[in-house]
């Protein structure tokens, strides 16, 4: 039964955090712990840290995430198409082709507008 397979994933989830957590905790127990203010400073190549880390980022990253999101949704919609493809006719190829080419048009637009440039 399907749910039984997922019960395995659930069990794996419950277990999987132990593998990385155990060495980290053992490390905390057996390693020396002598923090000093200098040691706990932020490491930026020996130069003292200036200003806030959590600064404003370029709009470029946001655009990239957006283009990715669009493609992600597209690919997710293509999965059922791909799975059923063997049982479908030529019309399915046309439907998928139109779907993909419409999106490619968006990519061409992003390309022309320079949203894909990384400067």
């Amino acid at each position: 039964m399907e749910l039984n397979e997922w019960a395995f994933i659930g069990a794996f989830f419950m277990l999987s955090w132990i593998f990385p957590a155990a060495p980290v905790i053992i490390n905390k127990l057996i390693a020396p712990n002598r923090p000093t203010p200098i040691k706990r400073e932020t490491y930026e190549c020996g130069v003292e840290t200036v200003g806030d880390t959590w600064v404003q980022f370029k709009v470029q990253y946001y655009l990239l995430a957006l283009v990715f999101l669009v493609f992600d949704v597209e690919m997710v919609l293509l999965f059922p198409w791909a799975v059923a493809y063997n049982e479908l006719g030529m019309f399915a190829f046309l439907a998928g082709g139109v779907f993909i080419l419409l999106l490619l048009e968006g990519l061409v637009y992003a390309w022309r507008k320079g949203a894909l440039e990384w400067t």
């Binding site: 709009v59 946001y62 655009l63 957006l66 283009v67 669009v70 949704v73 597209e74 919609l77 439907a95 139109v98 779907f99 993909i100 419409l102 999106l103 048009e105 968006g106 637009y109 992003a110 507008k113 949203a115």
Partner: peptide
């Protein structure tokens, strides 16, 4: 299905224009 594709394209173009 096709309209979804059109919608996604429109969303992408719109976001690029605004940004």
């Amino acid at each position: 299905f096709e309209v979804a594709s059109l919608l996604l394209t429109a969303a992408m173009i719109g976001a690029i224009v605004v940004a």
